[in-house]
Design a protein around this nucleic acid. Structure first.
Lengths: 241, 241
DNA sequence: GCGTCTTTGTAACAGTGTGTGACAACCTCC
DNA sequence: GGAGGTTGTCACACACTGTTACAAAGACGC
């Protein structure tokens, strides 16, 4: 089936398993795509820098202690390139990945190549018309009249106005607001927001919490939404709904 | 000081690695817990059916194609039993998903047994007094016109104004107010609020009670809400409703 | 590329919360 | 009434947290 002369779309496959790289590359090249395959984050960054990419297919479980989620977040920080996650796990993982980093679709391993192709086409079609088309219900967390939009990474005040949160501030709030009433240690917050663990005497989280409070609390000295639990950590005390 | 005959708490360890099962079983049994160990989902279901379980410690990477996250979700569907997940060192995805599925805490392998014990105590302490489900309606305790909001960690006076309680003060009041009329020994209060036991001649609890009274009693010298029981401890005498 | 602006990590300092020992007041039992 | 033990309170030291300022790192526009 000859493809009409069309700009060749460029796929980047990130997977530590050579067989999968080869399988995907062969199949998509047959389908008329240009395919680059890499085995990890470093190579991915290099490939991204070298040539524009239209779609990234990213394995969630990479070897070498690399984490697909981190790479996805990294990609999202830089660009709007569509991302399809490859995962061996079930729908729960995929949902989270979607929430966390804004991947566009997912495919569970083992997969059928025909299905991968269908998803890839679908994602490319959706993304192509410039602006992010909003077909899925936005994932929203509501509390005390506020709205935290996980897809758009925005926080809206009860009056609808926008709060300008930085990436770090947003990540901490997102993790905590998803579990009101649960106490998070600083270490947990560090791991959940950026996959690093905290070393002793690190005040990073405290500083971020302070900045966050300054933006979302009526009186930062008497916080109502993010409270401290002495000797343990922080807890989100907003009321869902 | 003889420990009051307290119900032995029952732990269920789910892990496919026999050495880990044995290590955890030995350690927690030494600490006075009853421990059951199983190696997979089937045995887990059987154990759960056989005897009530107070805490499940669940490995996320089970052999035989079994998925710890599925088991966690399955547990959550049926019950509110606290869950601690055992995860790989840097599998952030698993942790996020685990929390999302409803696990209460996670511990990265390899772990220190002392830390596991501390987490277990902490989870049991927070879960024990009535199932505090995360997204359920606000948990409120009312007494004599006062309102203690456990989710928001706030105390409101009859006139609706806010009382600024510290973490420690709030925890003690929360524990006692949940069980009006029941007498708590200092040791019990220490255990329930911070998972440590009290050593001899420790005046910590007394000091906290004094500070608490100063904030909530009309006349701290003639307490109406938190009374002393000489030779035993303290009792909350607020009238529910 | 370069300079500029934003975001983040870190150190320093101030303020708050808590544990501890001392002591006074109190209770109970003899 | 006195002894011995228990409780309330205070003061103080120390640990924990909030906040600010500044430097480093990163993002952005040109």
């Amino acid at each position: 089936m000859a493809e009409p002369a069309r700009r060749q779309e460029h796929l980047l496959v990130v997977d530590d398993d050579g067989r999968i790289r080869q399988m995907l590359a062969r199949y998509f090249e047959d389908e008329g795509y240009r395919v680059t395959t890499v085995d990890g984050g470093k190579a991915m960054r290099e490939a991204m820098a070298r040539a524009p990419v239209d779609l990234v297919m990213l394995d969630l479980m990479l070897g070498q202690g690399e984490n697909g989620l981190d790479l996805a977040r990294e990609l999202r920080a830089d660009s709007d390139v569509p991302i399809i996650m490859l995962t061996g796990r079930d729908d729960v993982v995929d949902r989270i990945v979607g929430l966390e980093v804004g991947a566009d679709d997912y495919i569970a391993k083992p997969f059928h190549l025909r299905e991968v192709l269908a998803r890839a086409k679908s994602v490319l079609r959706r993304k192509a018309p410039a602006a992010v088309s909003e077909e899925s219900a936005a994932k929203m967390i509501r509390f005390d009249g506020w709205q935290l939009d996980l897809d758009r990474r925005r926080l809206l005040r009860p009056d609808g106005s926008d709060v300008a949160l930085t990436t770090g501030e947003f990540d901490i709030l997102a993790v905590m607001a998803r579990h009101p009433g649960r106490v998070f240690s600083r270490d947990m917050l560090m791991e959940l927001t950026r996959g690093r663990s905290l070393d002793a005497f690190d005040r990073t989280i405290d500083a971020q919490i302070a900045r966050l409070r300054r933006k979302i609390e009526a009186d930062p000295a008497q916080p109502e939404l993010v409270k401290s639990v002495r000797g343990v950590g922080y807890v989100f005390t907003g009321k869902a709904g």
